[in-house]
C-alpha cells in the first residue's frame, strides 16, 4: 500500500503531502507520524501542504489530530505552505484549525520549530546541546 514518506531533519520530522489523499492514506499518515515522533524523540513536525489543492474537514481533522497527539508527545506541529484558496475555503467551512501552528513556507516552519527548541534549551540549566 502507498504511504507518505516521513523525513528526519535534525530534531524535526518533515512530511510533504504531494498526492490527492484518500481517507485511508490520511489515517495511515497520522499513525506513522505518532510512531516516528516517539522513535526519533522528535521535537517538531513539519507538514508541507503546498501541493494540496483542497483540504476538506477530514484532512483538516487529521492535521488537528496530529497537532494534538504530537503536543502530548512534546513535539510542535507546524503546517506550512497552505494555498490562499485553500485557506479561504477552510475558513468558510468553519475550520480555523486553532490548535495548529502555521508558517508561510518550510524554511519559516523549521525556524519556528528550531526557535522553540532553542528557547527551551536556553531556559534549561545550561543544557545547551
Amino acid at each position: 500500500m502507498d504511504s507518505i514518506p516521513i523525513l528526519k531533519i535534525g530534531s524535526a520530522l518533515l512530511v510533504t503531502i504531494q498526492v490527492d489523499m484518500h481517507d485511508q492514506l490520511a489515517t495511515q499518515l497520522q499513525e506513522d507520524l505518532t510512531t516516528r515522533i516517539v522513535e526519533h524523540h522528535a521535537r517538531g513536525v513539519l507538514i508541507d501542504i503546498s501541493a494540496l489543492e483542497i483540504v476538506d474537514s477530514f484532512i483538516g481533522r487529521m492535521l488537528a489530530n496530529i497537532a494534538s497527539v504530537s503536543r502530548l508527545l512534546d513535539a510542535d506541529t507546524v503546517v506550512v505552505g497552505m494555498r490562499p484558496e485553500v485557506a479561504i475555503t477552510l475558513v468558510e467551512l468553519g475550520l480555523g484549525l486553532p490548535g495548529v501552528k502555521t508558517a508561510l513556507n518550510a524554511e519559516r516552519g523549521l525556524a519556528l520549530i528550531g526557535g522553540v527548541a532553542r528557547d527551551e534549551a536556553a531556559a534549561g540549566d545550561g543544557d545547551d546541546d
Binding site: D20, M21, H22, D23, E53, I54, V55, I88, E92
Partner: peptide, 30 residues
C-alpha cells in the same frame, strides 16, 4: 474511499471547463 477522490477529480475538470475562478473551484470541490 477511492471514489471520493475520483469525484473530486471529476468535479475539478468540470469546474475548470465551466470557467469558475480558482477560489470558486476549490470551494465546490471541497
Amino acid at each position: 474511499g477511492d471514489d471520493v477522490v475520483r469525484v473530486r477529480q471529476k468535479v475539478r475538470v468540470r469546474a475548470t471547463e465551466a470557467g469558475l475562478s480558482l477560489v470558486d473551484q476549490t470551494k465546490l470541490i471541497t
